[in-house]
Design a protein around this nucleic acid. Structure first.
Lengths: 113, 113
DNA sequence: CGGACATATCGATGCTCGTCGATATTGCAC
DNA sequence: GTGCAATATCGACGAGCATCGATATGTCCG
């Protein structure tokens, strides 16, 4: 099953924000992406995982530092994964999430220099 | 009265997202900024204004293209202005909003390359 | 002054979403 | 198989917010 991530769609469909008026569809997709970043818990998750060896961490390693319940952390990780910002790999009982290199650059380019 | 804009604070306080774990305060501020961008109407406002001569527009020029009520548009413009993304200048009865150059770059740099 | 117009503010409403506890699911170890 | 540990899903609750109509504020013009 191939799942197209939000950031992949954005990469192919959206012009630079300040270059031309966005149509409703492009604006909606872009807004979705920024909404993913618009939560403190998710930003901390990203930066927390990025600072680990291999830019990866299993769920149990980030629950306590975040100070949120395990279901809530799992929820945020899912959103980050669905957006295409985190890779997900199962290793036995553990699930490791890894920062996908260069995915944030998709947004960077749309924001301009 | 000097008002410090959200993006100015972020510029001075926040490390690159993927460089080190964000503390709660920095994460909160950054999330606030992305929340401003996390709405289709505000993204369309930004791109709409940016594509006008002088990168500016008065409120009455953007209400109709957006398809939202005047109070709602005014509300979104206020949020963009409070964040530091739009300048506000009153000319008689009209109020012109202008894209502040380089403000989006504050976020760009925090997202990394 | 008084009316017309542009914009902002207010109050209300409905929806989205972050959060949690409870529970289901999966995989390992004994 | 049975029990335990890690993770995901579910249902519910509450806060936040986008939106609107009504109204206030401010400005120009005659």
């Amino acid at each position: 099953m191939i799942v197209v991530k939000l950031l992949d769609v954005i990469q192919d469909c959206c012009p630079p924000l300040l270059a031309a008026p966005l149509d409703e569809e492009a604006a909606g997709r872009l807004a979705e992406a920024f909404k993913v970043l618009g939560d403190p818990a998710r930003l901390r998750l990203l930066s927390l995982i990025a600072s680990r060896p291999g830019r990866e961490a299993c769920v149990c390693e980030v629950v306590e530092p975040l100070g949120l319940s395990q279901p809530t952390v799992s929820h945020h990780l899912k959103l980050l994964h669905d957006a295409g910002l985190l890779d997900r790999e199962k290793r036995g009982t553990w699930v490791y999430y890894r920062v996908v290199p260069g995915r944030l650059a998709v947004l960077t380019e749309l924001l301009g220099t």
